[in-house]
Design a protein around this nucleic acid. Structure first.
Length: 774
DNA sequence: GACAGTGAAATTTTT
DNA sequence: TTTCACTGTC
């Protein structure tokens, strides 16, 4: 094990990495380029501290940005030294929730507080902003969230940098008051409130500083102001602080991330040492070159030079394509071709700027039987039926939860109309016995309600109480059964069907054509199932599923299953709800990491990931960068480009369409300015650059709108004798002749299989993919 | 309170 | 093109 001086797990590090791991005594800022092994450094450092420095694992706190990263870090650290499992590795938000749970009373929160997501936040806000259009409420909700990112309270004068509206302060204040009355928190509170507690309670601060002696922060470039404040509050002069980040990969400015946090870290933590990790172990040289040449154009950066340890290789490919259908086909072709040669689907990732773009790929891949998974768009927990049950659960632990109450009191309809709802809420507000307690208020106003509403509220309460009862009685209780009807289920319901998913589902459905009962396993699922049944939501969805062919009851069943691993207690329930709010990736449910599928993913979501082959799609002006971007925001888009491109290990492709359907309209597109920032010689170009590309793309900002007015591709220029083309049905061929006619150019192509076709470029031309220029 | 018909808006990116 | 909020009818 211990060969020459240093243990093996340190010997494999390069000099800078080693230096970073062995560093002690002062604050440390690690500037880690993409693929430079920063996770290895952090995990090794944790293990080394425990092993060689005798640091108590429980006194180590490592904060990451995503749950995935936290899990990976925990795994890798524990792999080096098992004791690392006792260190605390969490996301900022999950750490905040952990802290608040232990100090709920100090924060004036309900002991069983629940975390509101953006949706709930907007719902709450709409009770304050009555009669205001939904979009406006959402905008205000976003601004409140931003204010909290910047650690601004309703009375802070600096709020005007968030919103110019004078009323905003009042809206924000009212919102805060109402949220406080309910006793719940939103996402921003998970950071902001802990800071406030630590500042107002020196004893609490002292205790937690005494506990965590080592604090490591990953992805530091994406920390916002509030998170920075939290970090400061957690540290005393003896705390060892180490932050790792890359200013070139800061892509969450829109969410309050402050690059300044990283640029000014040495000022805020005096005596900071800086170590740079600039050796990239992930990508071949040409990929790094292309990525770097784009981000180099940014003015606002520390500047660093990434060197590839892997050396030369294939140039990135730039493919000009007709439209998004061809783009999807092109991706499928690439993937299929290489898979036939023995590569894995999981080598591939298709990247796009916005989630909406995934649809075309999903359709095409489904068609061509290419297995894929869509990362991040799994909106399971945002589904109506799921949110309904979650609201029931939230109300069960906190009967002051007005948002949850409004959501489910009359669902399915039990004759409790708006006037009854308001009456109950008013009664709760003016009830000195139990302020805000809606459950108690129902009892108070029961006599004033209509017979129907009275019966409805009674039924609702009965369901809540039954759910609560299911929490308290220990195991072997009545068997809870959720009735499930699975008719032949088309893919009618939303977007979560990956190919693999579907196959499994349809196979299963053939087995159980008719009515079948699934029972709740155990634990918390008894409570979930009880609520679903007693509230009438299960029946409601059952009958609707029959009509609409949805799978809502199945989704409920899935939620119940997910809950079964939690204990049937209030604490178990809180844990379950918290887990759902903070980590919606459902990673552990689909932990088929072994599954061989292509990854469809937004560029933002790729942070921290790597793939052998990456296709960045939609690299067009208006899509990426988005049309409205300029200045700082354009720089952020550039960093995003950099992040996406540096995910690729072996091969990188850019695809750029001449036409794209948006909002049901087809419009001409221009190539992204970013493509022009890469030396054309550093790329292998496939297909024809649209005419005027270089000229038009050079005017980076103030670029002409892409939607209207752009001229269609010039077919005379576009189709040239000798070009190689590809057609889905006929395969590869060569352009033999281009002739003019009154309907535009006529192109003659002869295919490798011997066939020959003639077509009008303006019409059928879109069915062909150009493979190589003559 | 359910439902069909309408018209307008929609696409950032996420803990 | 799709989706969603709003309106008027039953």
């Amino acid at each position: 094990m211990q060969s020459a001086g240093l243990p093996d797990y340190l010997e494999i590090l390069n000099p800078e990495q080693k230096q970073a791991v062995l560093h002690t005594g002062k604050p440390l800022l690690i500037l880690a380029g993409a693929g430079s092994g920063k996770t290895r450094v952090i995990t090794t450092k944790i293990a080394w501290l425990i092993r060689e420095k005798g640091v108590d694992p429980r006194s180590i706190l490592a904060v990451t940005f995503t749950n995935k990263a936290a899990r990976e870090m925990a795994e890798r650290a524990a792999a080096i030294d098992g004791r690392a499992a006792d260190a605390m590795l969490r996301t900022f938000h999950s750490f905040g929730a952990w802290f608040l749970r232990r100090n709920a009373v100090l924060a004036g929160l309900a002991p069983g507080f629940v975390i509101y997501d953006d949706d709930d936040t907007a719902s709450l806000l709409s009770t304050i902003m009555e009669g205001v259009p939904r979009a406006e409420v959402r905008a205000a909700a976003r601004n409140i969230s931003r204010a909290k990112d910047y650690f601004l309270s309703p009375d802070d004068p600096a709020l005007d940098r968030i919103s110019y509206s004078k009323q905003f302060n009042n809206i924000y204040r009212d919102y805060e008051n109402k949220l406080a009355a309910i006793g719940n928190v939103d996402f921003g509170d998970l950071i902001k409130k802990p800071v406030e507690i630590l500042r107002n309670n020196p004893d609490v601060a002292q205790r937690i500083r005494g506990r965590f002696r080592v604090i490591l922060v990953d992805e530091y470039q994406d920390a916002n102001v509030a998170q920075f404040e939290l970090l400061k509050e957690l540290c005393d002069s003896q705390t060892y602080v180490c932050v790792v980040g890359d200013d070139d990969q800061s892509i969450y400015r829109f969410r309050g991330a402050e690059v300044r946090n990283i640029l000014q870290f040495p000022d805020r933590f005096p005596g900071t040492d800086i170590i740079r990790l600039e050796r990239n172990y992930r990508s071949i040289e040409p990929i790094l070159e292309a990525a770097s040449s784009v981000v180099d154009k940014n003015k606002n950066r520390l500047g660093k030079k990434l060197r590839s340890e892997r050396g030369p290789g294939k140039k990135p490919v730039l493919a000009f394509l007709a439209d998004q259908d061809e783009e999807a086909g092109y991706c499928a072709d690439l993937i299929e071709t290489l898979v036939k040669k023995g590569n894995k689907y999981s080598d591939w990732a298709v990247l796009y700027r916005t989630n909406a773009q995934s649809l075309g790929f999903e359709t095409e891949f489904l068609h061509r039987r290419i297995p894929y998974k869509v990362v991040g768009s799994l909106k399971f927990y945002e589904r109506e039926e799921i949110k309904d049950i979650l609201a029931m659960l939230a109300f069960l632990v906190n009967p002051r939860d007005e948002v949850a109450f409004r959501r489910v009191i009359n669902k399915p309809s039990r004759g409790v109309g708006p006037s009854s709802v308001e009456r109950i809420i008013d009664a709760a507000a003016s009830n000195p016995e139990a302020p805000g307690d809606l459950e108690a208020a129902i009892g108070l106003v029961k006599k004033e309600l209509s017979a129907k509403a009275g019966a409805g509220t009674a039924q609702f309460l009965k369901a809540v109480k039954a759910g609560r009862a299911a929490l308290n009685q220990p195991d072997q209780s009545e068997q809870t059964v959720l009735t499930v009807q699975s008719e032949q289920s088309e893919q009618s319901d939303q977007s979560d069907q990956s190919a693999a998913h579907q196959d499994a589902a349809s196979a299963k459905n053939q087995e159980d054509r008719k009515r079948e009962s699934l029972r709740s396993a155990e634990g918390l699922s008894r409570c979930v199932v009880t609520l679903a049944n007693q509230s009438g939501l299960a029946d409601y969805h059952l009958s609707h599923d029959e009509i609409a062919g949805n799978q809502r009851l199945n989704n409920l069943q899935e939620l119940a299953n997910a809950s079964s691993i939690y204990p049937a207690s209030i604490d178990g329930l809180l844990e379950f709800l918290e887990h759902i709010e903070l980590d919606r990736s459902m990673e552990e449910n689909s932990d088929n990491g072994s599954l061989d599928t292509v990854t469809l993913i937004t560029i933002h979501n790729t942070k921290g990931l790597e793939f052998r082959r990456v296709i960045m799609t939609g690299v067009e002006q208006g899509v990426f960068p988005r049309e409205d971007k300029s200045g700082d925001e354009l720089e952020e888009e550039r960093r995003l480009f950099y992040v996406g491109a540096t995910r690729a290990m072996d091969e990188l492709y850019f695809s750029c369409c001449r036409m794209r359907r948006m909002y049901g309209r087809t419009g001409a597109m221009y190539p992204s300015v970013f493509l022009n920032e890469i030396d054309r010689k550093a790329l292998r170009v496939i297909g024809k650059e649209p005419p005027g590309f270089t000229k038009s793309a050079k005017s980076a900002e103030g670029f002409p709108r892409t939607q209207n007015r752009a001229s269609p591709p010039d077919n005379d220029q576009y189709w040239r004798k000798g070009d190689t083309v590809y057609h889905d049905d006929y395969g590869y061929g060569e352009v033999r002749e281009v002739r003019d006619s009154e309907d535009g150019p006529v192109v003659r192509v002869s295919f490798q299989n011997g066939g020959e076709v003639r077509f009008l470029a303006d019409h059928q031309g879109r069915n062909f993919t150009r493979i190589r220029d003559n």
